[in-house]
């Protein structure tokens, strides 16, 4: 595994509507690595996901982010996507009247910078849908419109499978899934994991990590990463709860 950073975050401070959420976050993800980011509600996990993808509501007040060696904070979301960055949404937005098929085709065209012949696209779509156990009629439905929780998440992973990003952020992809749906989604993600893909897996619970094995686990509390370790850290969190890390942080700051 090469030690080439695909994503590097340095002292990132982010505010939403004037309130600071991320307070100096540092994180480096190398090619081929799977990083899990865990933390209690309100710690800033989703904020990090949105800000990395360029949501206009989140203001970076200081800090820098490099993707494949290039600073990306000034880029628009579509420009980041074209460079290979991907966010699987926790709450995907419905867009009535726009079919999954037309959307995916437009997205693939945008990301690849060229039109894909309809026949080739349909073949690709069918193959990916089959693997994610998504029925054929699904592609004619409107984006996230009336989707069940499981359908929404599978649709996110379907997009990831088709767009083939190099850095994917999965924001609570496990939430709202029953165990079977979780397994299918994890299967989809595991198939994509490889030496060229970096993954940041954001989750509240350890459950997902039983199916997608992280190389590193980080704990985010109040806008900062307070602890990093191997996959055992997740189990410890599961056992002791986030209070344990919070206490630990407080102890650490006292020791300082």
């Amino acid at each position: 595994m090469s030690k080439e950073p695909i994503l590097k975050i340095e002292d990132l401070h982010v505010a939403v509507e004037g309130k600071e959420i991320l307070k100096g976050l540092n994180l480096t993800i190398n090619k081929g690595e799977v990083h899990a980011l865990m933390g209690p509600n309100g710690s800033g996990k989703s904020t990090l996901a949105y800000v990395l993808m360029g949501h206009p509501k989140y203001q970076v007040t200081s800090g820098r982010v490099w993707y494949k060696g290039e600073e990306i904070l000034a880029l628009k979301p579509n420009e980041r996507a074209k460079k290979g960055l991907f966010l699987a949404f926790q709450y995907p937005t419905p867009i009535p009247g726009v079919t999954v098929m037309n959307f995916l085709r437009a997205a693939l065209k945008a990301v690849q910078g060229k039109e894909i012949p309809a026949k080739d696209f349909l073949k690709l779509l069918k193959e990916k849908m089959k693997f994610l156990e998504i029925s054929d009629q699904f592609s004619n439905r409107y984006i996230n419109d009336g989707f069940s929780g499981g359908e929404k998440k599978r649709h996110e992973i379907l997009q990831m499978a088709i767009l083939e990003p190099e850095m994917a952020i999965l924001d609570e992809t496990d939430s709202g899934l029953d165990i079977d749906a979780l397994k299918t989604v994890a299967k989809g993600v595991n198939r994509l994991i490889g030496p060229n893909l970096g993954i940041l897996l954001i989750t509240h619970y350890q459950r997902m990590l039983n199916y997608i094995k992280p190389d590193f686990v980080h704990v985010l509390v109040d806008g900062k990463i307070v602890q990093s370790g191997g996959d055992k850290l997740a189990l410890k969190l599961e056992e002791l709860g986030y209070d344990w890390t919070v206490e630990k942080t407080e102890t650490l700051s006292v020791e300082k």
Partner: peptide, 27 residues
């Protein structure tokens, strides 16, 4: 904003995304 962000986060330009949303609305 959320619809636009969703579509643009997949590489689609803001102009095209707006059109998609409007055309979807009148579909």
């Amino acid at each position: 904003e959320e619809q636009l962000f969703y579509l643009t986060s997949r590489g689609i330009s803001e102009q095209e995304a707006t059109l998609m949303i409007v055309n979807g609305f009148i579909e």
